[in-house]
Design a protein around this nucleic acid. Structure first.
Lengths: 213, 213
DNA sequence: TAGATTGTTAATCGATTAACAATC
DNA sequence: TAGATTGTTAATCGATTAACAATC
C-alpha cells in the first residue's frame, strides 16, 4: 500500500467549486478543458488546479487537458456524491423549514427522511410529504432508518445535548447551523454554517474597503 | 503614518468566534481571561490568539491577561459591529423568508429595511412588518434609503444581473447565497454562503473518516 | 513530428507555533 | 519582589506559485 499524504481541507473546500464549474461546462456541451482555461474562468492559478487534482491521481492528459465529463465524475467520487445520504432536520423553525424545502439537495443524493421538533404546534405539520415528529421519536427513527446526517437548526441551548445523543446513536455527520461549537468523538463529522460569522465578516470587508479610499 | 500590514482573511474569519466566546464569558460575569485559558476553551493555540489580537494592537496586559469586556468591544469595532447597516433581501423564497425572520441580526446592528421579489404572489405579503415589494421598485429604494447590504437569495439565473445593478447603485456589500461567483468592482464586497459546497464537504469528511477505519 | 499541456519537483510565500524578553 | 502572561521575534510548518521535464 502506497503511503498516503493527508489531503488538506483547503484543497477539499475547493473541490465543490471545481465540480460546479465542470457541471456548467458539461451542460454547455464542452468536452475538454485545460487547467489554464479553467483557471481563467475561475480566477485561480492553473498551477493550483493541477496541484489540487494531482492529490487524487492523474485525471488529465499531457498536450490535451482534462475530459470534462470524466473529471466531473471523479470529483463527485472524491466528495462522496456517488452515494446517497439519509438526513433528518432537527428544529423546524424558519431555517429548518427553508432547508426542508430545498429540493436541490436531493439531486445530489442527500435524501431528507425525517423532521423533528419539540414544539407541539409544529408536530404533525407536513412539509414536502414529511410529517414533523416529536423529538422523542428521534432515537428510534435514527437507529431504524440508519440516518447518516442530521441538520441542526434548533435553538443553541439544546444543540449540545442533542448532538451528543446523535453521536451515541451512530450518526455520521452533523450539519450545524447553530452558534455552538461541537466537540464530539472522531466518528462524528461536523460541518458548521455560522451565518452570523459570515455576516460579521462582510461587515469587516465593507469597513476595510472604505478605509483604503 | 505607520506602515500597515494587510491583515489576512484567515485572521478576520477567526474574530467572530473570539467575539462569541468573549460574549459568553461576559454573560457569565467573567472579568479577565488569559490567552491560555481561552485557547483551552476554544481548542486553538494560545500563541495564535495572541498573534491574531496583536495584529490590531495590544489589548492585554502582561502578567494579567485580557479584560473580557474591553476585548469584546474592541473586536466589535474591528469587525465594524459598532455601526448599523441597512439591508434588503432580494428573493423572498424559503431561504429569504427564513433570513427575514432572523431577528438576531438586528441586535448586531444589521437592520432589515426592505424585501423584494419578482413573484406577484409574494409581492404585498408582509414579514415582520415589511411588505414584499416588486423588484422594479428596488433602484429607487436602494438609492433613497442608502442601503448598504443586499442579501441575495434568488434563483441563480438572475443573480449576476441584479448584482451588477446593485453595484452601480452604490451598494457596499452583497451576502450571496446563490451558487454563482460574482466578479464585481472593488467598491462592492461579496461574502458567499454556498450551502451546497458545505454539504458536499460534510459528505467528504464522512467518507474520509470511514476510510481510516 | 511539433505543439500543447500535464504531472511533479523546486522555490516562494504566508500562516502557525514556539520561545522568550519585556513588563505588569 | 516573584510570578504570571503578554507582545514580539524566530523557527517551523504548510500552502501556493513557478518552472520544466515528461509525454500525449
Amino acid at each position: 500500500m502506497a503511503e498516503e499524504r493527508r489531503i488538506s481541507m483547503a484543497v477539499i473546500r475547493r473541490l465543490p467549486r471545481y465540480y460546479r464549474y465542470l457541471g456548467e461546462l458539461l451542460e454547455k456541451g464542452v468536452n475538454k478543458i485545460s487547467s489554464r482555461e479553467l483557471s481563467e474562468k475561475m480566477n485561480v492559478t492553473a498551477s493550483q488546479i493541477r496541484q489540487d487534482l494531482n492529490n487524487f491521481g492523474g485525471f488529465g492528459q499531457q498536450g490535451y487537458g482534462y475530459n470534462v465529463e470524466h473529471l466531473h465524475k471523479e470529483i463527485a467520487k472524491i466528495l462522496g456524491l456517488h452515494q446517497n445520504y439519509k438526513m433528518i432536520i432537527i428544529g423546524v423553525g424558519n431555517l429548518g423549514q427553508a432547508l426542508a424545502n430545498y429540493s436541490s439537495f436531493e439531486k445530489r443524493g442527500f435524501k431528507l427522511a425525517g423532521l423533528f421538533d419539540v414544539n407541539p404546534r409544529l408536530i404533525g405539520m407536513s412539509i414536502r410529504g414529511l410529517e414533523v415528529q416529536d423529538i422523542d421519536k428521534m432515537e428510534n427513527f435514527v437507529k431504524e432508518n440508519n440516518i447518516e446526517i442530521a441538520i441542526l437548526t434548533m435553538p443553541k441551548t439544546r444543540v449540545k445535548q442533542v448532538a451528543e445523543n446523535l453521536a451515541q446513536w451512530g450518526i455520521k455527520g452533523l450539519w450545524n447551523f447553530s452558534a455552538v461549537d461541537l466537540f464530539l468523538p472522531d466518528h462524528v463529522q461536523v460541518e458548521n454554517v455560522h451565518l452570523s460569522h459570515s455576516l460579521m465578516t462582510l461587515a469587516y470587508k465593507i469597513n476595510d474597503a472604505e478605509e483604503i479610499n
